[in-house]
Design a protein around this nucleic acid. Structure first.
Length: 872
RNA sequence: GCCGGGGUGGCGGAAUCGGCAGACGCGACGGACUUAAAAUCCGUUGGAGGCUUAACCCUCCGUGCGGGUUCGACUCCCGCCCUCGGCACCA
């Protein structure tokens, strides 16, 4: 027996890394793609050293791109870096360096890491958003938006993150905290730049339907986020005041139940009421209340838990439907940012209004009778039959029903009344149907250094003046970076002259949200070196949309929403001919690991944990929790360690095999060893046979023995299921199918070594290597050569299966009695579809078991089973 | 509160046009090899019970809980429980 060389992954991986670097398998034709496939991973923020959890995203992507390449697609598979952003500044401050240095160093480290993983990109298309040749086009985009009214500056109450010392967008606030640093977000009234994403609210919502290959979850998250509500805007006149008080309601059918009005503390009328208040004491009280409410707002007025508070303005409003006079309050629970910043209070049919009215002793008038809904008539009938009345619904009742106490609208259903009351108001010019969205405009200005400067100049004489396109890019000043220096502290930067009047002027000192950079980068990858425009529309139209996009779910209502908006805006600017940028989306799960926390010493690295999960410093019992891998929680596993011990192929295989890729899953060192063992088995199997197969004859399936036919069948079944699994991102089951094939081939080889069909085995081993190659490219490239091939795996065609080969000559039919398996029957394939024959054979077979019981019926599922139903 | 996903062996997970539950892997146990260990290889492994010289032979239970539909339910329907995620004083 010839000795088999050991699986020396270090040598193998080194060899093929270099080879792939030289080959350029993923170089794609920019202008004339044939059978194009645009594969894209969300590009990373260069935050430092990568751990195995980061690897998942890129390993999935590399496997998929390799598979598509072997299927004959022209694959565009680029990578770049979302290189602007706050962590670079914070790290620079900490390390007394410049954000640029920190960023570039990380990028170099990450590129090396990708290479270690065997991940192949077309680096000629690399993008770094912090370079002027990229951010110039952010500025261009900003100016285009400005011209079209899609970018505007406004004073608004913004989310201020005290940790990051900048404002952040609504999408970047999670549970009242900053998505990045977790600080509690405050509210500040500031002048800020916005992108008018709300102009596209309707399209962003309705086009979700087109995204049939997106996870349902993401679509729902966006739908909730956009939050469309249909309702009516109604004008209440204010007594002794010349302007109307506008409110928005989704329940115009309850308008006869209005017993008070409430204004947000920021509502413009509030200030006027205070100014005009003759009573000095009252004036002061009102002012104090507003002050208090606004301060409360800074913490989190949004919270349901905050007690509702109000203050009577002394003013009254007139209900446009019945002329009733109702008091106007200022209330802390009314939000200025939604609707009109004012509401009509209907305590009987709104939980919040009910709470408020109860507290302030306001009338609670029921105007909807929930018992009389047509859909409930069955229940009503039953109640009548039983001689009773249905119980009165408890107030507040927020459901639909029929109107009562509502004048001429009495008896209508809520739905009818919605329309009729809306029309009633409309016909008198006192209201109109209206739609409101929860989504707000995208706040894009940031008070930080490391970002794209906003290309705007403020001139005392001319006002806001856009920087002329010819002067782009407005470069970030190259100053030594000491401390938290924003552009507002760098006179060399902001001192300038006005492009109009040439007088002294000041540049805008804010930089753009980094999400602007990432909202269109997928277009830049297509023609990354174009210095005339952000991207070449012709090439973009040829390559877009991205056929498969992969990234984390955390971007569901941030990056994925912004990108959809920007694509639509560019379409309307005539630069793109498509509505949606990402045809297929896959959101991978996180990799988790146990994290240990000491009440005194915080996060403890698993390797330091002492026996019995004690803290190494103080002996305290540690709190153990499964958490996503993160540097801050000291529970990361470094790819270097894994690669040094087992090789990159093992890490790749384990990452894909560990579980469904969309799920969060725990990293297991034992699992890694299992993957390593498997690769050793494949290695030994192929090498033990490779030399013997040199003189394999021609393959002739018609001459197969029964055993050979079984091997042939398994091979084709495996090709089929692996292909289908990869298409659906079921990498875990694809790998297990390949493991089964390997087990089968090992059995075959060991079973009767003298009688091996060499042609069959050669083909089986070759196909095995090819279908495994997207997952573990290094070992497969090596084995492919050792099987006698000169050309690269990536130049091979993906194996296809023969439908004829999928079925065995014989099939096993299960025989059930009353649904329980009692016996089995092996029949020739032709018979397995013959109901009558199956029934006959099955009954004959189990006759002894029937024991004279009466057979009621026999159910035959061809090819599968026979179920005999007997009387017990 | 509203919306959505998910509950299957010791563990990760397979199997859903209703048709053999537990593929594949990990762990565990037993064995082979070895002076020994590691590595490797072979076998067993949902639970309970039974039969036999022996055999991978049989019976019952089993996919969060309780009902239902069906010849047959992890899969469909009704009602719950738990859990994860999104939204949330959005009028």
């Amino acid at each position: 027996m010839p000795r088999i060389a050991k699986y020396d992954f270090k040598k193998i991986e080194k060899r093929w890394k270099d080879f792939w670097d030289q080959q350029g398998f993923f170089k794609a034709d920019t202008y004339h793609p044939r059978k194009k496939f645009y594969y894209l991973n969300m590009f990373p923020y260069p935050s430092g050293v990568l751990h195995v959890g980061h690897g998942r995203n890129y390993i999935i992507g590399d496997a998929f791109a390799r598979y598509k390449k072997m299927q004959g697609f022209s694959v565009l598979n680029p990578m770049g870096f979302d290189a602007f952003g706050l962590p670079a500044e914070n790290a620079a401050i900490e390390n007394k360096t410049h954000p640029r240095e920190w960023t570039i160093a990380n990028i170099e480290g990450m590129k090396k890491q990708f290479r270690e993983w065997g991940i192949v990109y077309d680096w000629d298309r690399e993008i770094r958003t912090c370079e002027p040749d990229y951010y110039k086009w952010n500025q261009w985009l900003f100016l285009q938006f400005y011209q079209r009214g899609l970018a505007y500056r406004a004073q608004a109450i913004a989310n201020w993150c005290p940790g990051c010392e900048t404002v952040i967008a609504n999408e970047q606030v999670v549970d009242g905290r900053c998505w990045r640093c977790d600080s509690v977000v405050e509210k500040k009234k500031l002048h800020q730049w916005f992108f008018k994403i709300t102009e596209y609210a309707e399209q962003l919502l309705s086009d979700l339907e087109k995204l049939e290959h997106w996870p349902e979850r993401v679509r729902l998250m966006q739908q909730n986020w956009i939050g469309r509500s249909e309702g009516v805007e109604a004008d209440f006149t204010v007594e002794g005041f010349d302007r109307a008080l506008k409110i928005f309601t989704t329940r115009p059918d309850t308008i006869f139940g209005v017993t008070f009005m409430a204004l947000a503390p920021e509502h413009p009328l509030v200030e006027e009421f205070i100014t005009q208040e003759p009573d000095a004491v009252r004036k002061e009280q009102m002012r104090a209340f507003v002050q208090r409410a606004l301060q409360q707002g800074e913490i989190a007025r949004g919270a349901v838990t905050v007690e509702k508070e109000g203050f009577f303005t002394g003013r009254y409003a007139i209900n446009p439907v019945n002329g009733e006079r109702v008091p106007i309050y200022i209330a802390n629970y009314v939000l200025m940012e939604y609707g009109t910043g004012a509401i009509m209070g209907v305590p009987a049919h709104d939980r919040r209004d009910f709470e408020f009215a109860t507290k302030y002793g306001l009338e609670i008038r029921q105007v909807i009778d929930g018992r009389l809904l047509p859909e409930k008539s069955e229940e009503e009938a039953r109640w009548e039959e039983e001689g009773g009345h249905p119980p009165l619904p408890q107030l507040p009742y927020e459901g639909e029903g029929r109107l009562i106490n509502s004048g001429q609208f009495n008896g209508m259903t809520s739905r009818e009344a919605f329309r009729k009351i809306g029309e009633f108001l409309q016909s008198r010019g006192l209201g109109r149907f209206a739609v409101n969205y929860r989504m707000r405009d995208w706040l894009v200005s940031r008070q930080r250094y490391w970002g794209t400067p906003i290309p705007i100049i403020h001139c005392e004489r001319c006002g806001i003046v856009p920087v002329p396109e010819s002067e782009l890019p407005v470069k970030l000043p190259d100053v030594p970076f000491i401390g938290k220096k924003g552009l507002a502290e760098i006179p060399e930067f902001y001192q300038t002259t006005c492009p109009h009047c040439h007088g002294p002027a000041k540049r805008d000192t804010d930089t753009m949200d980094t999400f602007v950079d990432s909202s269109w980068y997928y277009l830049r990858f297509i023609s990354p070196h174009d210095d005339q425009r952000p991207f070449d529309p012709q090439a973009a139209n040829a390559w877009m949309p991205v056929d498969q996009y992969v990234g984390g779910i955390e971007h569901a209502t941030k990056h994925l929403l912004y990108s959809r908006f920007v694509t639509k805006a560019l379409r309307d600017m005539g630069m793109l001919k498509l509505d949606e940028p990402f045809a297929r989306l896959f959101t991978q799960g996180m990799i988790e690991h146990l994290a240990y926390r000491c009440p005194e010493h915080n996060w403890i690295h698993p390797s330091e944990v002492r026996e019995g999960t004690k803290c190494p410093h103080c002996g305290h019992s540690l709190h153990v929790e499964l958490r996503k891998m993160s540097k801050s929680q000291r529970n990361t596993i470094s790819p270097e360690e894994v690669i040094a011990q087992y090789g990159a192929d093992t890490e790749r295989l384990y990452t894909l095999f560990m579980g469904p890729p969309e799920k969060d899953i725990e990293w297991s060192d034992e699992g890694v060893r299992g993957s390593f063992r498997f690769l050793n088995r494949v290695w030994n199997l192929v090498l033990s046979q490779a030399r013997k197969l040199a003189d394999a004859g021609t393959l002739d399936p018609t001459q197969f023995t029964e055993r050979e036919r079984k091997v042939w069948q398994k091979l084709h079944q495996t090709i089929k299921s692996v292909t289908e699994d990869i298409e659906q991102f079921h990498f875990n089951t694809a790998v297990s199918a390949i493991m089964e094939l390997t087990n089968e081939l090992t059995d075959y080889v060991n079973g009767n070594p003298k009688k091996i069909n060499k042609a069959l085995l050669k083909r089986a081993l070759e196909d095995l290597v090819l279908i495994l190659s997207p997952f573990t490219p290094f070992i497969c490239e090596e084995l492919w050569r050792r099987l006698g091939h000169e050309d690269a795996v990536l130049e091979q065609n993906w194996p296809t299966y023969d439908p004829q080969a999928l079925h065995a000559a014989e099939r096993e039919i299960v025989i059930q009695i009353n649904g329980k398996v009692r016996d089995r029957l092996t029949v020739p394939a032709e018979i397995s579809e013959d109901r009558a024959e199956l029934e006959k054979r099955a009954l004959a077979r189990i006759q002894p078991r029937l024991d004279g019981k009466q057979v009621l019926k026999v159910i035959v599922v061809p090819g599968r089973l026979v179920n005999v139903v007997v009387r017990e």
